[in-house]
Write a protein that binds this DNA or RNA. Sequence first.
DNA 1: CTGTATCCTAGCGGATACTG
DNA 2: CAGTATCCGCTAGGATACAG
Lengths: 106, 106
Amino acid sequence: MSIALQDYESCPVTAVLRRIGDKWSPAVIRLLAERGYGFNELDRAIEGISRRVLTRTLRALEEDGFVRRTPLGGRVEYALTERGRSLREQLYALGRWAAVTADRMH
Amino acid sequence: MSIALQDYESCPVTAVLRRIGDKWSPAVIRLLAERGYGFNELDRAIEGISRRVLTRTLRALEEDGFVRRTPLGGRVEYALTERGRSLREQLYALGRWAAVTADRMH
DNA sequence: CTGTATCCTAGCGGATACTG
DNA sequence: CAGTATCCGCTAGGATACAG
């Protein structure tokens, strides 16, 4: 069996890993799982992220249907969609596995 | 609640996502789940990867304890460790989820 | 408050020739 | 067969000033 070129991008698990495997997406998803957040609120909550990257991260998550952006007169609220909450469940399961087997992970 | 700097790297799920969220790790894991492979054999099976990147991918997976490298007189065999098979199970679950909800994933 | 514009750096991924 | 050496482009990520 061999893996063709088009398989690599079309493989669902690879696609989702590449999307949320960046530096900040997991942190954003984790926060939005609690409640809705404003932009600067997120910026302050996630220590170390730059506004430029936060913007890009949110846009990408929005484009994939994980996050919904709602303008509310002068401010904006970001929240998880149903699909986003579904993803969050998957990541939670993966997190439990990772925590248990983290001994050889440095 | 806020996310401190050190949390980002120490979070198990983020760590594992960053490790296997690269371009080729999922493909390598998928192949090695079947059976042991030699280096050039992997290179041929994964269409589009360069030897340089394949080497780095294998080294990283080995360092994290997902893959075992076994020299066998003139050739080398790469195979999943127990931990690697465990990860493969997790990815398989994530893949099923992704396949089902792939409608808004492009 | 919610971003965008600009500029910069480091690292990933790729092509290819070479080595034991 | 199993890699390493070299070079190169692209993009992710970061700092910071500016804008509506």
